[in-house]
């Protein structure tokens, strides 16, 4: 049995998994923690501590980082984000040939083959209006928690359109809507529709078809999923058939992919000896110094 860990350092959260990286990878533990202005190293150590405790493993053969985790001192190797999201998505839904990674900073559509090899990609522009952080800011302004955003959006009878170009203008729109007495659910659905429109264009530019797997922090926002399905239905009239898919572990896709590629690498290099064993201190920034 090959036991590996994957750590995905994102702009908004750190995700970690421990995986049995055998032929059919199996998730032994997973954890995610928001960074919220904390020192990233502290958050990394925190989630690693959780997944090691929960998995109960006594060794890690390989510790793989991805995302912005290049500097993690106890990682055995670092993998590019697109590669890890592709591989993680493939594990969670083997039919997927596109992964739409909706993160705090940006959204990225990645095309892959049946082995998780990246073939092409497209990203939203640098404007924040397509990002998870933007949605979080709006939610905070509206006084709702992120967990409430999706269900509330689904109840909107009359979505109110917002600027899809610029996050600053969109925020101004929202302030104006609140002062006009527009209901919170209609505002949220308007924002979801605006974001979904951008994502649909992204998928169209990648000539996406078949199963598109949603990963990243917003993958399980059911309001956004509904808006995206609507936007894609409009596109479908133009020929492209897209099936949306996701998984409760979708936020961990990057960490999962890192752990799986870590196991692959471990075998390919014929490595002997573990990256960490339970006789050593927990792998943290402090212990690695």
């Amino acid at each position: 049995m090959t036991i590996t860990a994957g750590i995905d350092v994102g702009s908004g959260a750190v995700k970690a998994v421990v995986v049995d990286g055998s032929a059919e990878p199996r998730v032994l533990a997973h954890a995610a923690a928001r960074i919220r202005r904390r020192d990233v190293a502290t958050v990394v150590d925190e989630v690693m501590g959780i997944v090691l405790a929960e998995s109960g493993v006594d060794r890690l053969d390989y510790i793989a980082s991805t995302g912005e985790g290049e500097e993690i001192p106890f990682a055995t190797g670092h993998f590019y984000g697109m590669t890890t999201h592709a591989r993680g998505a493939l594990m969670l839904d083997p039919r997927a040939r596109i992964v739409l990674d909706i993160g705090a900073l940006h959204t990225r559509a990645v095309a892959m083959d049946g082995h998780g090899k990246v073939l092409d990609y497209k990203m939203t522009s640098q404007c924040a209006s397509g990002s998870g952080q933007f949605l979080e800011n709006i939610a905070r302004y509206l006084g709702v928690s992120l967990a409430e955003v999706g269900p509330l959006s689904l109840t909107a009878p009359k979505p109110e359109g917002v600027s899809s170009i610029c996050a600053v203008l969109a925020e101004t729109d929202v302030i104006n809507m609140v002062s006009r007495g527009i209901a919170t659910n209609d505002i949220l659905r308007g924002i979801h529709d605006s974001m979904a429109g951008r994502f649909a264009r992204l998928l169209k530019s990648l000539k996406a078809e078949g199963v598109v797997f949603l990963s990243g922090g917003l993958a399980n926002d059911i309001g956004l999923q509904a808006s995206l399905a609507d936007a894609l239905a409009a596109e479908r009239r133009n020929g492209a058939e897209i099936i949306l898919s996701t998984d409760p572990l979708a936020i961990h896709a990057g960490a999962l992919g890192a752990a799986i590629w870590g196991a692959f690498r471990f075998h390919r290099l014929g490595t002997t000896g573990a990256a960490w064993t339970s006789t050593e201190p927990l792998p943290t920034h402090e212990s690695a110094r």
């Binding site: 290049e70 190797g77 670092h78 993998f79 590019y80 697109m82 590669t83 083959d113 049946g114 082995h115 998780g116 090899k117 990246v118 590629w261 692959f264 690498r265 390919r268 290099l269």
Partner: peptide, 11 residues
């Protein structure tokens, strides 16, 4: 396909 296409940054 299936070989090392992992785009690893550091081994």
């Amino acid at each position: 396909p299936g070989s090392d296409a992992t785009a690893e940054v550091t081994p």
